[in-house]
Every structure is written in structure tokens, then in C-alpha cells.
Write a protein that binds this DNA or RNA. Structure first.
Length: 148
DNA sequence: TTTCTGACA
DNA sequence: TGTCAGAA
């Protein structure tokens, strides 16, 4: 139930490159749409010379994926882009928080428990996130007692 | 074969 | 947005 590995950064940065063909297969967004979105300044491939094949970073791929999801949900392209940008902006914050707070995860068939460590500096209580199927909730217990 | 740009029944 | 053409 431990997650001891000294956090090694996710190897892939923006070095994961995808051609427009891959992006179409992965996201389901047509090449026509990708070129249109680019024309509208909503997305941007890695800067290349004109006429050469487009290359997209993993981040851009995710942006495209999210925009497509919002479009499917019925949002206009413009609002889908705004939502996707906000979502992307939240990732660093979530990543920082989780990385700092996550102490470990106990995975079980019917109920998994996420250890978020002590509630505060007093170190008197511990916070756990419980996952039971689709249901999730927090559980705060005295640090001395077993987590049950 | 795949992608690029421009155009439009 | 799809799709077709002509070029790379």
C-alpha cells in the first residue's frame, strides 16, 4: 500500500509528437477541422515551414481531445475551446496538490482507500478518500486509530 | 500513401 | 465541415 518511489517526473514532455493522421485516429477530429481550428487560432501545431506536414505535441493533442469532447456535449467551438483551456490550466494545480498530498493508495476490489496524509500540522487527524465503485467520499480519522 | 492549400454542387 | 483537385 505504499507509493515509495521518489517521484520521478513523467518522462514525456512536449517531445511526444503526433502527425495529423495520428491525431485524427486518436481524437476523431478530421484533418479539415484541425486545419480550420488552427486557422481560427484555437490550436497550434509545432511551428514548421509552410507546406510541410503538421506536428502536434502531446499537450496540443490533449487540447484537441478536450475541445472535441465539449463539442460532442453540445458546446459551440468557441466555448469548447474556452472550457478546454480552463481545464488545461487546472492540471498543474491539481498535479501539484496531488503530488504533495498523496501518501499512498490501497487498491481493493470493493473499496479502495486514498491516503491524503495528515489533515494539518497538528498531525492529529488523517484524511482518506474512499472509493466504492462509483461512489467516493472523504473519511477523517484520528491519526492514532486504524483507518478501518 | 499521406498531407498540403485552396475552393465550393 | 465535407470533399475534390493538383502538387509535394
Amino acid at each position: 500500500m505504499a507509493n515509495k518511489d521518489s517521484d520521478k517526473p513523467l518522462i514525456d514532455s512536449d517531445k511526444l509528437i503526433f502527425g495529423i493522421g495520428q491525431v485524427q485516429q486518436i481524437t476523431g477530429v478530421s484533418g479539415r477541422q484541425l486545419r480550420y481550428w488552427e486557422e481560427q487560432q484555437y490550436i497550434a501545431p509545432i511551428t514548421q515551414e509552410k507546406g510541410t506536414q503538421r506536428q502536434y505535441t502531446f499537450r496540443t493533442l490533449m487540447m484537441i481531445f478536450h475541445i472535441q469532447r465539449y463539442l460532442t456535449q453540445g458546446f459551440t467551438l468557441q466555448s469548447a475551446v474556452e472550457k478546454a483551456k480552463k481545464f488545461e490550466a487546472q492540471m498543474p494545480v491539481l498535479r501539484t496538490f496531488i503530488k504533495a498530498q498523496l501518501q499512498g493508495v490501497d487498491v481493493a476490489k470493493n473499496r479502495s482507500i486514498i491516503d491524503f496524509g495528515f489533515k494539518d500540522a497538528s498531525r492529529s487527524q488523517r484524511v482518506y478518500g474512499v472509493v466504492e465503485g462509483d461512489k467516493t467520499y472523504f473519511k477523517i480519522v484520528d491519526a492514532s486509530k486504524p483507518e478501518d
